[in-house]
Amino acid sequence: MWWQILLFLVMSAVIVTGFITEAPQKQIGEASRIFYFHIPQAWLCVVAFAMSAFYSARFLKNRKLIDDDYALDTARLGFIFCLLATITGSIFAKVTWGSFWNWDPRQTSIFILLLIYGAFFALRSAVEDEDRRATLSAVYSIFAFVTVPFLVFVVPRMVTSLHPTDSVIDENLNFTMGVQVRSIFFSSLAAFSVLYFWMLSLTKRLNRLKRKQMTGAA
């Protein structure tokens, strides 16, 4: 229980300090506060995807349907975070670049991530047999995950982008932010990550119970 209370306190502290302290980026000004929330969301979007690929690989290895449930759970959570990152990002784009959507490379890559999640769900709904659905979606999930490094790291750096690139680390891998900004940012990142793993563990428990009930009834 204690860590849930701690999570609540840290999250509240991040929200409060994120708004009352000085804006993290002088040039962009007030809008740059979104950085405390937008980056953790985008980060979890990729982490959830990686977890989905991980459970998919484990399913292909052990052939336990519970792993397929987990892969779906984390994909669902990842989709939510992806949607949140897209929305917060486009609000930021409106404020700083003047339009909600202008196909900046970053926007393109998060849009493709959304499409991949969408395709994953579409594939699942197109296969009736449970084992086959698990296999096919596991393969697709891993196959799509292989393209993520291209989307997240390569494409945005090959095409000129308006997206701030040096907000966390600069080219020499040094932190660009001051101590205060850094501590708020990393607290937020940690809090969001804990939140994600908590949500994941809840859905995992739910699925374990469902599987248990199914085998019990059979």
Binding site: L115, A122, V155
Partner: peptide, 10 residues
Amino acid sequence: AVLSFPILLP
């Protein structure tokens, strides 16, 4: 097409 496009877009 649904499954291929996200992978082909980049």
